[in-house]
Design a protein around this nucleic acid. Sequence first.
DNA 1: CGTCTTTTTGACTACTGTCAAGCGCTGTGG
DNA 2: CCACAGCGCTTGACAGTAGTCAAAAAGACG
Lengths: 247, 247
Amino acid sequence: MVTRRAPPPRPGPCRLCPVRPLALFRPLSEAELDAIATTRSTVRLVRAGEAVLRRGEGANIVLTLFAGWAFAYRVLPDGRRQIGEIFLPGDLIGARGAASDPVEAVTDASLCVLSRVRLRAMLDNQPALAVSFAQLVARSNALLSERLASLGRRDAVQRVGALMLELAARQNAGVPPKDEDVPMPLRQTQLGDALGLSAEHVNRALATLRRERLLTLRSRTLRLHDPAALARLCGWDSAYLSEAPGV
Amino acid sequence: MVTRRAPPPRPGPCRLCPVRPLALFRPLSEAELDAIATTRSTVRLVRAGEAVLRRGEGANIVLTLFAGWAFAYRVLPDGRRQIGEIFLPGDLIGARGAASDPVEAVTDASLCVLSRVRLRAMLDNQPALAVSFAQLVARSNALLSERLASLGRRDAVQRVGALMLELAARQNAGVPPKDEDVPMPLRQTQLGDALGLSAEHVNRALATLRRERLLTLRSRTLRLHDPAALARLCGWDSAYLSEAPGV
DNA sequence: CGTCTTTTTGACTACTGTCAAGCGCTGTGG
DNA sequence: CCACAGCGCTTGACAGTAGTCAAAAAGACG
């Protein structure tokens, strides 16, 4: 039973936070951080498959993903689903406020919850924080633009390859590692929903990439055998991942 | 020759700016605005088809579109193009900084240019401005997510319909107007590049929508005959357009 | 009016989706 | 420790949507 599994790691004191360098609060000094630690309302633990943020809930809170993966999605009236942002540790969830899409956990996950009114108060007082906030959203825009290019102008094999490169790179300081095991918890159905493909076709694309000896994806683990060749095949360039200042 | 055509309107004094209610500086008082007017470095005039922002130029400047339309795009190694954000008057261009995609003018356009370092200084001093900036970036995020859903999960007719609804709504305070002429300067080739379709297929989709008496698009002018029915057909909901505070 | 761009239409190709069935791993219960 | 149940992954056959190529019609501009 899922309940038996070890829970995801709980966040500790903010000033020791291992994901802070990636997250909203990176520009703050330790002293400022201590102030926030008081402010941080709660921690949220979510199991794989459960809702991290429900429709509309974003009007009240913002979360920082501490451990685990999650994704935002939208369901069209005919039932088809499109996955938008894919969140990894350090990412900010719910930045769009009331207009935020619902978010679901891919793996068991733990998150730091911030009330939106408090966040707003903090942003009003700390311009550096507001700028950091904007930068995170700007980065998210860069990722969305890249995926838009995928859905619009890449075929199935290239889409799958480009997403694997991106997710591997985001777990490896921006560089897709060669011949190393990389966690890849997304199911093929979810990959399909993220890439605008059917799950079956994702499978066929993965088979092609495996046959070409470019990558292997088995039991939630990805291995890139030749990231450079894969990037060439997919027309993928890591530039959009850079932490380039949005302002 | 294009040069003969009347130039686009030049922006006047900031405090009288007609697009300010939509733009970055909306939260500022008239007094604060006067300070900025001094700061505003230049105005840029661009003709239809020319570059508004070149690759990498975003590292140095940010622009506010004053008049005309523009779009950001990305070119894949095989030459295919994907249009990302579509900019209308009041929109902020280049918010992603160095990572911004190149931007091209759809029509003749005029823009207010802000040096990035000055903008940064302003944001640091005016928290309201920093929050406004973050909100604009968050709104752009919402538009990108919606288009991602289009490319991933809507068929050609729905994609074209949804984009027409969005662009009509954005020119009409968020509501797609019924039976009114709406400017729609994008060529079918550009619509295709925005929607991940070939220009020919865009044309077929438009023909279908015309046949169904849902809309007419002729000589750069769009007319929605039944926005409600069109929205139903496309699974389109205007919620994502709302100016809902991102923070 | 002549030229160039944009739009339209048609025929054919190809990629991707859908439906269906079989396989396999993982975790559960005996 | 082994059989079973479920979910996820694979594979195949076929259908349908969209792309490509080609050419003509319709506008836009000088």
